[in-house]
C-alpha cells in the first residue's frame, strides 16, 4: 500500500493550490494545497470546525475563496478553474456534484422527481428550452423516458425503487442520505463531494454506504471526495486521506500513513493513553523541580 502509485500526484482529477478562505478575522482555511486522484476515494478529515465544509463550499463555488486556485480535470480532458465559476456552472460544466452536511432534498417532491430535477440541464435542451415542449413537438417524451430510466437505475442501486412515488420528506434519515447521493449522481459528475455521508447512520447502513460508494467508483468511474468522522468508512474505503486542523493541512497520504502520523493522533484521534501518562509525568517532574527551587 505504502509503495503503491499515488494517483493524486500522477493523475489528479482535482488540484487545490494555496486555498485560503477568511471570514472577517477568522481564517477558516489557511493556504491549503492537496489533490484528489482520478478514480480515488479521497477522505478529508479533521476535528469539528477544522474548515472541511468550507473547503467543499469553495470547491463547489458556494464561497468565493479569498485566494487560491482550484483546477478540475473532467474525463473529457478539459481544464476548469473552479474559483472563477459560479456555483451552478461548477456543477453543470466542471462536473462536480455534492451533497450537504444537513440533507437538502426537495422534500415535497417524490423520489423520482428529485432525480429528474438533477437531470434538468439535458432535459431542458431536450424540451427545446421549453418552447417545443409546450407545443408537444421535438421528441421530448422519449428523452424524458430515458431520464426516468436513469432515475430508476439509481433507485435500484440505493434500494428505494419501491418508494419511487413517495415524497422524499417521508423517507427515514438513512434513506434520505442515500437519495441525496443518488440525486448528485444523476447529474453525471466526474467528482462527487460528500459532506459527512455516514453521519447518523447505524453500523449496517454505514456498511451499505461503503458498498454504494465503492460501486459508484467502480461502475460509474466517478472519483469521490468525502468528509467523514466515521473512521470505519475512512479507513475502510478511502485510498487517500487529507487531515485538516484549524484550516491547516497537517497530514496527507495513504490511510495507513495518516493513521500512524503522531500529529494526526494528537490532533484528531485524540491524545493516546500512553501519551497522557507521559505528559502527566513531565508535568509532575516540572512541578517537583519548582518546589525544590522554592
Amino acid at each position: 500500500m505504502m509503495t503503491s502509485h499515488r494517483t493524486w500526484d500522477s493523475d489528479p482529477v482535482l488540484s487545490v493550490e494555496h486555498l485560503t478562505m477568511r471570514f472577517g478575522g477568522l481564517v477558516a482555511v489557511n493556504d491549503l494545497s492537496f489533490s484528489a486522484g482520478r478514480g480515488d476515494i479521497t477522505a478529508l478529515i479533521g476535528p469539528n470546525g477544522a474548515g472541511k465544509t468550507t473547503v467543499f463550499n469553495c470547491i463547489t463555488g458556494f464561497y468565493k475563496p479569498t485566494t487560491g486556485m482550484m483546477s478540475m480535470r473532467p474525463k473529457d480532458g478539459a481544464l476548469h478553474l473552479l474559483e472563477r465559476m459560479p456555483d451552478f456552472v461548477v456543477a453543470s460544466k466542471a462536473k462536480v456534484a455534492r451533497t450537504f452536511q444537513n440533507i437538502r432534498l426537495f422534500s415535497g417532491m417524490t423520489l423520482l422527481e428529485n432525480l429528474l430535477v438533477a437531470q434538468h440541464n439535458p432535459l431542458m435542451i431536450a424540451s427545446g428550452m421549453t418552447f417545443l415542449g409546450v407545443l408537444g413537438i421535438g421528441g421530448y417524451k422519449a428523452k424524458e423516458k430515458a431520464a426516468i430510466d436513469r432515475a430508476r437505475y439509481w433507485l435500484d442501486k440505493i434500494g428505494l425503487t419501491a418508494r419511487a412515488d413517495d415524497p422524499a420528506g417521508d423517507l427515514p434519515y438513512g434513506a434520505q442520505r442515500r437519495l441525496e447521493i443518488a440525486r448528485a449522481m444523476c447529474t453525471g459528475p466526474d467528482l462527487l463531494c460528500l459532506d459527512e455521508p455516514a453521519a447518523g447512520l447505524n453500523p449496517r447502513e454505514s456498511a451499505e454506504l461503503n458498498a454504494l460508494l465503492l460501486s459508484i467508483r467502480k461502475d460509474d468511474g466517478t472519483s469521490i471526495l468525502l468528509i467523514e468522522h466515521d473512521m470505519s468508512v475512512v479507513m475502510g474505503i478511502s485510498d487517500h486521506v487529507v487531515v485538516l486542523e484549524y484550516g491547516i493541512k497537517i497530514a496527507d497520504g495513504t490511510p495507513t500513513e495518516t493513521r500512524n502520523d503522531p500529529r494526526v493522533i494528537a490532533a484528531y484521534l485524540g491524545v493516546d493513553d500512553e501519551d497522557v501518562e507521559e505528559i502527566e509525568q513531565e508535568l509532575d517532574e516540572a512541578a517537583g523541580s519548582e518546589e525544590g527551587r522554592a
Partner: peptide
C-alpha cells in the same frame, strides 16, 4: 423540466444550484 425546476426552487434553492 422548467416547471419541475420552479418547484425545486421553491423547495430548496441551494440544492438547485448544486445540481447545476
Amino acid at each position: 423540466p422548467i416547471g419541475r425546476a420552479w418547484e425545486a426552487l421553491r423547495e430548496d434553492e441551494v440544492a438547485c444550484r448544486s445540481l447545476g
